[in-house]
Every structure is written in structure tokens, then in C-alpha cells.
């Protein structure tokens, strides 16, 4: 943790629909760190994540990646290629088979040959436990399977960091576990991860650090056991109360 952080957010501000959603965020994510972001609905968690890969362009402040400021008017595609993202609603490409979902970006963006991309895709499908489903289409799979494909699709770009935005919130309860297991595996292998989640157990067990976002600012942060078990502010206590 002594080296420069992989991601450094400085004074990030963003308004949407005339309302200031992010009101000055300073946050570092170290290489290999699993940072969990919690907070009430509307606190700006998704907006924060989307600012990191510039699906939303910040109004003010900077995003530094690997020590260099990312400028939104240049090289955004390059930046996005090294930042993996997984969405709450999977967003798989429904007209493509599972294999094609995984090979599209590596062939188009990274210039991999179809064979290289396919063999990379197959080993990732194996890793998320879906080796036998490469010919399936998204509509033929369960939510949990689709989300695992979505994780594999992001990993196929060999990103340096993975962003997860409430990736289990759209799943039936019995399917949550299989997705969390894949994420746990990633964390164990040292992937840098920023995980927006309501799964407090996951944050407690897998997270290295937890950030509590409230009203567009970082209201509390620290080790999972401190933040989750010894909350300082009344708001965080109240928020955590909903989960126990």
C-alpha cells in the first residue's frame, strides 16, 4: 500500500438533473485492494463508480489512474479498456452468444485474433463455472449465470481494476451466492476491486476497506470491522440497522 494508488479521486463533483449528486469526493484505491462502498439509495454510489470509467463525466475534480490524470476529451476508450465494469442488470448483448459476448471487445478493441480471444474467453468461462455454456444466448440463462458471464466479459479485457455496481441486487436470493463466490475468487487472486454492495457479510469478509457514502460525500471510512461494527455517526448506525 506504500506505492502510488491505482486510482485516486480528487475533489470529484457531479450534478445530474440539476441536483448535485457527488459533492467533493476524495478517495484512493490501492493496487490489489478490495474497497467496498455502502450507502443509502440516492447517495451517489452508482454515480461515483460511473465517474471512474467516465460513463458520467465529472463536473469538477480529477480521476487519476496509475499516477496520471485521465482527460475526458482524449483516450477515453483506452482508459475504459483497462477498467472493467459489471452492472446491476448484467447488460449482456442479447443478440450474441456467450462466447461472442466475451470476444467482441478483445477482438475489436485490443486487436486479438478470433482464436486468441476465443481461448481467453473459454478459460474465463471455465473460471466462472460456465465452460459448457459458450454457445448459449443470454436469454437462455438464469440471472446468476448471466451475471457470471458479465464478469467474465469484463475480465476478458484483462482490466487492472474491476468496478461492481450492486451486481447481486437484481438476482433472486438463491442465485446471489454463486456470483459472490466468483468475486471472492477474484479478490483472492489479488484483483483490485471497487464494490458497491448491500451485502454486508461480503464487505466484512472480503473487503479490505469500507466507505460509507452519504449525501454525495464520504461520511465514514475504515477497516470493515470498524466501519460495520463500530460506526461513529448516527446516520451510519441507522443505515446498518436496516441490515441486521
Amino acid at each position: 500500500m506504500s506505492a502510488a494508488p491505482l486510482i485516486r479521486l480528487k475533489g470529484l463533483r457531479k450534478s445530474l438533473g440539476g441536483k448535485e449528486i457527488l459533492r467533493g469526493i476524495d478517495l484512493d484505491v490501492a493496487r490489489g485492494e478490495v474497497l467496498c462502498v455502502i450507502g443509502p439509495s440516492g447517495s451517489g454510489k452508482s454515480t461515483l463508480v460511473r465517474c471512474i470509467n467516465f460513463l458520467e463525466i465529472p463536473d469538477q475534480g480529477t480521476v487519476e489512474f496509475d499516477g496520471a490524470v485521465v482527460h475526458p476529451d482524449e483516450s477515453l476508450d483506452q482508459h475504459r479498456a483497462r477498467v472493467g465494469m459489471v452492472f446491476q442488470r448484467f447488460n449482456l448483448f442479447p443478440h450474441l452468444s456467450v462466447l461472442d459476448n466475451l470476444t467482441l471487445a478483445p477482438t475489436q478493441v485490443l486487436g486479438l485474433s478470433p482464436d486468441q480471444a476465443a481461448s481467453r474467453a473459454r478459460s474465463l468461462l471455465d473460471r466462472v463455472g460456465l465452460a459448457d455454456r459458450e454457445r448459449s444466448f443470454p436469454a437462455e440463462m438464469s440471472g446468476g449465470q448471466q451475471q457470471r458471464v458479465a464478469i467474465a466479459r469484463a475480465l476478458a479485457m484483462q482490466p487492472q481494476v474491476m468496478l461492481f455496481d450492486e451486481v447481486t441486487s437484481a438476482l433472486d436470493p438463491e442465485l446471489v451466492g454463486e456470483v459472490l463466490a466468483v468475486m471472492k475468487g477474484l479478490a483472492r487472486e489479488g484483483m483490485t476491486m471497487l464494490v458497491v454492495t448491500h451485502q454486508m457479510k461480503f464487505a466484512r469478509e472480503v473487503g479490505h476497506r469500507v466507505v460509507f457514502l452519504e449525501g454525495g460525500v464520504v461520511a465514514e471510512e475504515g477497516k470493515p470491522e470498524d466501519v460495520l461494527e463500530r460506526p461513529k455517526s448516527g446516520r451510519l448506525k441507522e443505515f446498518l440497522g436496516h441490515f441486521s
Binding site: 475504459r80 479498456a81 465494469m85 452492472f87 442488470r89 447488460n91 475489436q108 466479459r153 469484463a154 479485457m157
Partner: peptide
């Protein structure tokens, strides 16, 4: 679905590539 464009762009596809392939 807007999520289709977002997923494509998040993977690093350009606007044109996202249009063409997704």
C-alpha cells in the same frame, strides 16, 4: 436499453464500434 450502449462503451468500444456491433 441504454445499458447496451453503456456496457459497450465500458468495455472500451468506440461510439462507432458500439453502433456497428451492439
Amino acid at each position: 436499453d441504454r445499458g447496451q450502449t453503456e456496457a459497450a462503451r465500458a468495455l472500451g468500444l468506440s461510439r462507432r464500434q458500439a453502433m456497428r456491433h451492439v
